[in-house]
Lab assay of single mutants.
Amino acid sequence: ERLAYIADHLGFSWTELARELDFTEEQIHQIRIENPNSLQDQSHALLKYWLERDGKHATDTNLVECLTKINRMDIVHLME
């Protein structure tokens, strides 16, 4: 799945992406607590919560915009 692929590449950027996707610091902290050992797991959790929260509004376009804002064009190019 594309989101899994994106999550695998996010690394430390997942928190920046979370902020761009309008997650609160508290929500970010919660994701860290729930997935303490792996940045990859934290990234996967973030994208899963985003899909659950935004439903049909959780679009590739939205994700590309946010990834561009945090200067992760490498991931944007991987999505093309």
Score class of each variant (00 low, 15 high):
Lys69Tyr: 12
Ala58Leu: 14
Asp54Ala: 11
His9Ile: 11
Glu65Trp: 03
Arg19Asn: 13
Leu67Arg: 00
Asp54Phe: 13
Phe12Gly: 12
Met73Asp: 15
Glu52Trp: 10
Thr59Phe: 05
Pro36Val: 05
Asp8Gly: 06
Glu20Tyr: 07
Gln42Trp: 02
Tyr49Trp: 06
Val64Ala: 11
Lys69Asp: 07
Tyr49Asn: 09
Phe23Cys: 04
Ile28Met: 09
Asp22Val: 04
Ile75Ala: 13
Trp14Phe: 04
Thr24His: 08
Pro36Gln: 06
Glu26Asp: 09
His44Leu: 12
Arg2Leu: 15
Arg72Gly: 04
Ser43Phe: 02
Ile28Tyr: 04
Ser38His: 05
Asp54Pro: 05
Leu21Ile: 03
Lys56His: 13
Gln40Arg: 08
Ala18Leu: 00
Ile31Met: 04
Asn62Glu: 07
Leu17Gln: 00
Trp14Lys: 00
Leu47Arg: 01
Leu47Ser: 02
Leu51Pro: 03
Glu16Gln: 15
Thr68Gln: 06
Trp50Gln: 12
Ile31Glu: 01
Trp14Ser: 00
Ala4Glu: 12
Glu16Lys: 03
Gln27Ala: 06
Gln27Asn: 15
Ala18Pro: 00
Asp8Leu: 14
Thr15Arg: 09
Ile31Ser: 01
Leu63Pro: 01
His57Thr: 15
His44Gln: 09
Glu26Phe: 03
Glu52Thr: 12
Leu39Ser: 11
Asn62Trp: 13
Ile31His: 01
Thr68Gly: 10
Asp54Met: 12
Pro36Arg: 08
Leu21Glu: 00
Lys56Asp: 14
Phe23Gly: 00
Gly55Asn: 13
Tyr49Met: 14
Trp50Gly: 03
Gly55Phe: 05
Lys69Asn: 13
Leu46Trp: 15
Leu67Ser: 01
Leu47His: 01
Lys56Leu: 10
Leu21Tyr: 00
Asn37Asp: 12
His29Glu: 10
Asn35Met: 11
Leu3Tyr: 05
Glu65Asp: 15
Asp74Arg: 01
Leu39Gly: 06
Asp8Phe: 03
Asp74His: 01
Glu20Pro: 00
Leu63Arg: 00
Gln27Tyr: 03
Tyr5Cys: 15
Gly11Lys: 09
Leu47Thr: 11
Leu3Ala: 05
Lys56Thr: 12
Glu16Met: 09
His44Asn: 14
His57Pro: 13
Leu51Met: 12
Pro36Ser: 06
Thr15Tyr: 02
Cys66Ala: 12
Ser38Thr: 10
Ile6Ser: 01
Asp22Leu: 09
Gln27Phe: 12
His57Asn: 12
Leu63Tyr: 05
Gly11Arg: 08
Gly55Cys: 06
Glu34Ser: 11
Pro36Gly: 10
Ile70Leu: 09
His57Cys: 09
Arg2Ala: 01
Glu16Ala: 10
Asp8Glu: 08
Asn35Gly: 03
Leu17Pro: 00
Asp60Leu: 11
Arg53Asn: 05
Asp8Ser: 14
Ile70Gly: 01
Arg19Trp: 12
His9Cys: 13
Ala4Trp: 06
Asp41Cys: 06
His9Ala: 06
Trp50Thr: 09
Arg19Cys: 07
His9Arg: 11
Ala7Lys: 10
Asn71Lys: 08
His57Leu: 07
Ala58Asp: 05
Ile6Thr: 01
Asp54Lys: 15
Ser43Val: 03
Glu26Lys: 14
Cys66Lys: 13
Val64Gln: 08
His29Phe: 14
Asp41Asn: 11
Asn37Ser: 11
Asp41Pro: 03
Gly11Val: 05
Gly55Met: 09
Arg72Gln: 05
Glu16Trp: 03
Cys66Met: 13
Asn37His: 11
His44Gly: 07
Arg2Trp: 14
Arg32Glu: 14
Gln40Thr: 11
Phe12Leu: 08
Tyr49His: 07
His29Ala: 12
Trp50Asp: 01
Glu34Trp: 11
Thr59Gly: 07
Ala7Cys: 15
Tyr5Trp: 05
Val64Cys: 05
Lys56Tyr: 06
Glu20Ser: 08
His9Pro: 03
Lys48Tyr: 07
Thr61Lys: 03
Glu25Gln: 12
Ala7Ser: 14
Ile28Gly: 01
Ile6Ala: 00
Ala4Asn: 11
Gln40Leu: 05
Ser38Ala: 13
Gln30Ser: 08
Ile28Pro: 00
Gln27Leu: 10
Leu17Asp: 00
Leu17Ala: 05
Glu16Arg: 13
Asn35Thr: 08
Leu51Trp: 06
Gln27Trp: 11
Gln40Asp: 15
Trp14Pro: 00
Arg53Asp: 02
Thr59Ala: 10
Glu34Phe: 03
Ile31Ala: 01
Thr61Pro: 14
Gly11Leu: 06
Leu10Lys: 00
Thr61Gln: 07
Glu25His: 08
Ala7Glu: 03
Asp41Ser: 12
Ala4Tyr: 08
Tyr5Leu: 15
Ser13Val: 04
Arg72Ala: 04
Leu10Thr: 02
Gly11Tyr: 06
His44Val: 15
Val76Arg: 04
Leu46Thr: 06
Glu26Cys: 04
Leu39Pro: 12
Gly55Leu: 11
Leu3Glu: 03
Thr15Lys: 15
Leu46Ala: 15
Trp50Pro: 01
Gln30Met: 13
Glu25Thr: 09
Glu52Leu: 13
Arg72Thr: 02
Asn37Phe: 12
Asp74Met: 00
Leu21Gly: 08
Ala4Ile: 04
Glu25Tyr: 06
Glu65Ile: 15
Glu16Asp: 14
Thr24Pro: 05
Thr59Leu: 10
Leu47Cys: 05
Glu25Ser: 10
Asp22Ala: 09
Cys66His: 13
Phe23Ala: 04
Ala58Gly: 11
Leu46Val: 08
Asp74Val: 01
Trp14Leu: 03
Trp14Ala: 01
Thr59Tyr: 15
Asn37Glu: 13
His9Ser: 02
His29Val: 14
Leu39Trp: 10
His29Cys: 08
Leu10Asp: 02
His44Ala: 14
Arg32Cys: 08
Ala7Thr: 14
Ala7Trp: 09
Phe12Thr: 11
Ile33Gly: 10
Asp8Tyr: 02
Leu46Pro: 00
Glu16Thr: 14
Phe23Val: 05
Gln27Thr: 15
Glu20Cys: 05
Ile28Trp: 01
Arg32Trp: 03
Ile33Cys: 12
Arg72Glu: 00
Thr61Gly: 12
Ser43Arg: 01
Thr24Lys: 15
Phe23Thr: 04
Glu16Ser: 11
Asp41Arg: 09
Ile33Asn: 04
Gln30Arg: 12
Lys48Ser: 07
Asn35Ile: 07
Ser13Thr: 09
Glu52Ser: 09
Tyr5Ser: 06
Glu20Arg: 09
Arg32Asp: 08
Asn37Met: 15
Leu17Cys: 10
Glu65Leu: 08
Asp74Phe: 00
Pro36Cys: 06
Ser43Ala: 03
His29Leu: 12
Met73Tyr: 14
Arg32Met: 09
Asp54Tyr: 13
Asn71Ile: 00
Phe12Arg: 10
Glu20Asp: 13
Asp41Gln: 11
Cys66Tyr: 03
Leu3Met: 13
Gln30His: 10
Ala58Gln: 14
Pro36Trp: 08
Leu3Trp: 06
Leu67Ala: 04
Tyr49Pro: 02
Trp50Glu: 02
Arg53His: 07
Glu20Gln: 05
Asp74Tyr: 00
Ala18Val: 01
Asp8Arg: 14
Val76Leu: 08
Glu52Tyr: 02
Ala45Asp: 15
Cys66Glu: 15
Ser38Phe: 05
Asp41Thr: 12
Glu34Arg: 13
Met79Ile: 03
His44Arg: 04
Leu10Phe: 04
Leu51Arg: 08
Cys66Arg: 12
Ile70Asp: 01
Ala58His: 15
Gln40Ile: 06
Thr61Ser: 08
Ile70Tyr: 01
Leu21Val: 04
Asp54Gly: 12
